[in-house]
Simulated scan of single mutants.
Amino acid sequence: MTFAKSALVLVPAALLAACASRPLAADPQALSAANAQWQSLRADYTACARDKADAGLPGRGSAQDLAGAALKACQPTLDAMRGAFRDYLDAQMVSSHGHDSARQAADRLAQDTEAKTRSYVVRYVERERYNAGQH
Rank of each mutant, 00 (worst) to 15 (best):
K52P: 01
A25G: 09
D90E: 11
E114F: 10
L24F: 10
A25I: 09
L10F: 14
A20V: 08
S40L: 03
E128I: 03
D79Q: 15
A55D: 14
R108M: 07
M81A: 14
R82S: 14
A70G: 04
M1E: 11
H135Q: 10
A67N: 02
E126P: 00
S6M: 13
A30V: 10
Y88F: 15
A80Q: 14
V121P: 01
A14W: 14
E114I: 01
E126A: 11
N35M: 06
L71E: 01
R108W: 13
M81E: 13
A63R: 04
G98V: 02
V9A: 13
G68S: 09
L31S: 10
L71W: 04
H99A: 06
L41C: 00
A30S: 12
R22H: 09
D79V: 05
L109I: 00
A49E: 03
D87N: 15
A132E: 05
Q104K: 14
A47Q: 13
G83M: 10
A55F: 09
A49C: 12
R82M: 08
A110Y: 01
G61S: 15
D90W: 06
D90I: 03
A91T: 05
G61K: 15
A132K: 09
S21V: 12
R50S: 05
S21G: 11
C48F: 00
K52G: 07
A67I: 05
G56N: 12
K52N: 15
P23S: 08
Y45W: 03
D100P: 00
G98K: 05
Q92A: 15
L57W: 05
A102W: 00
L109E: 06
Q134K: 11
R82I: 01
L71K: 01
N131E: 09
S119F: 11
T2R: 08
D100L: 10
F3K: 09
P23R: 10
M81F: 01
G61L: 14
K52D: 12
A25P: 07
A25L: 13
K72V: 08
Y130V: 03
A7Y: 06
L57Y: 06
A20W: 12
A25K: 08
L24Y: 05
D87P: 06
G61I: 04
D87A: 15
A18D: 03
H97Q: 12
P28G: 07
Q39I: 00
C48N: 06
L15G: 04
A69M: 06
D112H: 13
K52E: 15
G83H: 11
C74Q: 03
D107M: 04
T77F: 00
L16W: 12
S119R: 13
D79S: 14
Q29C: 08
D44T: 04
S32C: 04
P28C: 03
S21K: 11
A18K: 07
R127N: 09
N131R: 11
G133L: 02
R86M: 14
C48Y: 00
G98L: 04
A20Q: 05
N35S: 12
H97I: 12
L66Q: 11
A14L: 15
N35R: 13
K72E: 14
A80V: 02
R86N: 15
A43F: 00
R127F: 06
V125Q: 00
A43E: 10
A26C: 08
G83D: 15
D51V: 06
Y130T: 06
T2M: 02
A18Y: 14
A13R: 09
P23A: 09
C74G: 02
L16S: 10
R123S: 14
L31G: 04
A80C: 06
T117K: 04
